[in-house]
Design a protein around this nucleic acid. Sequence first.
DNA 1: GTGAAAGCGCTAACAT
DNA 2: ATGTTAGCGCTTTCAC
Lengths: 338, 338
Amino acid sequence: MATIYDVAKMAGVSTKTVSRVLNEEPLVAEETKRKIMGVIKQLDYHPNAMASRLKRQRSNIVGFVVPYGSEFVFQDLNMMEQLRGAHDVVTQEGYDLIVSAPINRKDALQEILRLVKHKNVDGVILYPTAGVDVIIKELEAKHFKYVTLGLYKEDQKTNFVIVNSLAGGYLATKHLLSLGHRRIGLINKPNAFFNCCIEDMLLTGYKTALAETGVTLDPEFMVEGDYTIEGGCQAFKSLWENSNTKPTAVICASDPMAYGAIRAIEDLGLVAGKDIDVVAGDNLPLTRKLYPYLSALTNPSYEQGKQAGKMLLSIINEKKDFPGVTLNMEFVIRNSNS
Amino acid sequence: MATIYDVAKMAGVSTKTVSRVLNEEPLVAEETKRKIMGVIKQLDYHPNAMASRLKRQRSNIVGFVVPYGSEFVFQDLNMMEQLRGAHDVVTQEGYDLIVSAPINRKDALQEILRLVKHKNVDGVILYPTAGVDVIIKELEAKHFKYVTLGLYKEDQKTNFVIVNSLAGGYLATKHLLSLGHRRIGLINKPNAFFNCCIEDMLLTGYKTALAETGVTLDPEFMVEGDYTIEGGCQAFKSLWENSNTKPTAVICASDPMAYGAIRAIEDLGLVAGKDIDVVAGDNLPLTRKLYPYLSALTNPSYEQGKQAGKMLLSIINEKKDFPGVTLNMEFVIRNSNS
DNA sequence: GTGAAAGCGCTAACAT
DNA sequence: ATGTTAGCGCTTTCAC
């Protein structure tokens, strides 16, 4: 493989001049430049990234570390959307993206440190999970760059991108109320799944809308799922069995749980979207195709990943923290009477 | 950040000895080793990956390049399964995985060369798409390492992992025949989607099974989808409209097409799995959860990714090509009368 | 506008 | 069993 020396020699210039051309620095005579470019093409020369990284002390790679193991992750379409958003924005800016999905939470924490301490990456995007606060303290002490998808502590002010579901929850509930529903189930996310410390805004929106309309809150209608299809199915069934007056509609905090709820509804011999109105929680592309009639909260997970990637690059380049960003969940009404 | 010199100085040894300890070479006295380990811990020293890579001329990173843009890719669960398989096996072996999903095919080809020529990665996993043969020729000329997921030319002998759907297609058809079906639709993959040059084994299996049972092949029952949900939906509808005697069962070459077919069936007021038997083409985890009653071909995409990753590492480490691997699609019967 | 030489942090010959 | 020294291929002072 040709090196910068070969190019320099053949062009009859110094390596520095070649380097200048490579890095598009000014102050190179047009002619020298043309000549060098010619030699580069002729030798099919490509600067060795490893060498320039060592010298620059920059890998131009960012890491995306996910907890819970690859099995979970690559099938979680929301996470994939976040990943996609991060991928798109960092590759756009000339960075590469390393994806790492260690098998369990403890490994994930170690993985973050491995990537960063050995200078494998210039920064990481990570999820707040139990124990992550210790890791982040260490990152900060050593000035390693990171962005969290969610809050890792209540008073986190910087370096995060989160989604607030308040408006979504409110609008979804309002919508169902306006359709005449008075017994609205809520299959919520588990109380401490990704982030341990933010208020449950979906629930708040739900409660607010009910209160505004003068509908009394029935604890029987609020259950927890675990974000999965099975969880949604079970949750709906327990909702149904344990409530004296059956719900006529249900809001699910995630799309997979909505899939599960729909299956549960069908198992009861009812028709989702007709006998029981269902609102999905993410509005994934897949959902729009599988159940086009479903009204849905819209989880901006792609945008979240994108913002996180963008923020991480800013943090890396400007060597300072950035204020956190909060995205809002929206709500999309679709025709439920298909 | 501490360097190997700091460690060497503090431990009162040479950098080489520290290096020996780091790389777990033998021939280091137990005591020196212990002392060095102590210093390493004390300084929280971590070898700089960029430096060792430059010296070793190895990045310890492999690339996974997907065509068709991130939007397509991160929502394609089969591709994600392949990615997951590759991820799991390469991370296990101490490599990192760069995922790159350029927006169009032409970019993807350039992306492969970029990753490899600049020594960003030690090798790439790639898909055979139109034009890839030129790229691969270049890779081979420069001894860059690669593995293809599919065949990029008819007579490819090495460095690929493919899935043969012959047995799956045969068994699926046989199964439907044994249930009494005589008019079996086939929603096949488009004639040249990923790989341009392998025989359509699914079709062969289908035809063989029909012939064996003495059922005459009806061209009306064979349509092409485009791998997507919408494509499957449309394909089933055209199958239905254009056939004089309607099919009573349908085999879909991919899971998303099965989802689409099911929607089409429902749109006709029929019940999938009862009025019309549906066989899905991948048996993705999601499918098992969404439509648990569906019999399905089983696309070993996770295994495919794993094998590809493994093969790539072998190619990198042993500096020679490896014979291609063919995995078989299997067939899983589930209860269709739910 | 261009070049000489030092050095990023590690590993590998080749000593001893 | 351990140390010395010379790079890996680039970028970067600083000088001209």
